[in-house]
Nucleic acid binder design. Sequence first.
DNA 1: TAGATTGTTAATCGATTAACAATC
DNA 2: TAGATTGTTAATCGATTAACAATC
Lengths: 217, 217
Amino acid sequence: MRGGNVMKIPKPVSKRLSMYYRCLEKLKDEGIDVVSSKELAERLDIKPSQVRKDLSYFGEFGKRGVGYHVDFLIENLEKILGIKEEWNIAIIGAGNIGRALSNYVGLREKGFKIVAVFDKDDGKVGKEIAEGIKVLHIKDLDRVVKEKNVKIGIIAVPANVAQEVAEALEKAGVSGILNFAPIKIKASIPVEEVDISSSLRTLTFEIIRKHSTKGKK
Amino acid sequence: MRGGNVMKIPKPVSKRLSMYYRCLEKLKDEGIDVVSSKELAERLDIKPSQVRKDLSYFGEFGKRGVGYHVDFLIENLEKILGIKEEWNIAIIGAGNIGRALSNYVGLREKGFKIVAVFDKDDGKVGKEIAEGIKVLHIKDLDRVVKEKNVKIGIIAVPANVAQEVAEALEKAGVSGILNFAPIKIKASIPVEEVDISSSLRTLTFEIIRKHSTKGKK
DNA sequence: TAGATTGTTAATCGATTAACAATC
DNA sequence: TAGATTGTTAATCGATTAACAATC
């Protein structure tokens, strides 16, 4: 099914769509131009019906009895995920995370372009944090977001100021936020959380559980 | 319920336990020494029954009619999550992510100690990547993991070599892996994935959906 | 004791998987 | 046409939430 009426899509779908896309690119490289949900699922270690259901939220991309044309599916996923668009990004916070992200070339290749880095510390403002990127003062956020058409704001500041930075970003007019601070951000625009400490904590939890559980299958 | 028999715990529980812990520390700072599931839930914007159920997987920490003693619950969460333990970490890959993590002081404060950084590039080996941390050659992984009692390996290499690095880490004897490469790692020890590009992609997906959906509530 | 709040069972909700008619 | 594989509906599984007896 599909249509203009409200359609709820499970949270995990978008992560899987990215997986499908990456896999399809590989298939294309291998010279394969039609693939079945079975084949795709096998490569990704999931169920064929999951592949079909995930795709069905967005349209009918396959041919019964045949499978999915790799090129056609790639094209559609590119539209759904915004892969061919260029996304201008501003980073707030010129500390370790801010610096690492500014220098992370992998992002550029995927269409994510860091166009500005902000900090409130005058000692950092004006310094070159990455090639061609000078740190700006946070007070210029509004103006720069508009001028440089910033679509995504990345929060790379301590937890205690993260919420207010989020509000400033939203007010400045960004469309989405990626948050590295270990605190849940409340906003009316989409927010994704990346919490490294929390992931490490989940890991130690699992390690402890694994070792202390005797009869666990 | 609780007990020695196999007890399945929902995946999202550990993230929430971390949230509870952080919130309890704040409560302690505020001088509060007893808290109800209702109060805790309100502060975290979840349901009281979720708090109670999550905690019930690990024991009976509250008093009926009273609530939870903050200190007592903190103590227990510290054990469950391994918060007071020191976790020695090795990073594989001395690129941008590796460097950023090596310099990320926030980790140290939480008991995560980077004790070694590895790379296969001779140009990087021997260089000081962070204060007091010289890059080692990957060939010394096995020895160093044993000598320095490394418990966690962080994968900060490109996707195409991530799986083999994971296998090397497991063979060397680490207990868990944190993976920054955009590929799902298969291993028999716990693995947590942190995928920044994928999170950004989910964000662009949500932004596009939000804007193109008219009647959406 | 009366009031409050837990721990746990049962009901609900959401996501995944299986099954199958439609159709290439 | 016969075989294959989709798109979609129905069944299952897993996680959250509500309800309530137990008890501080």
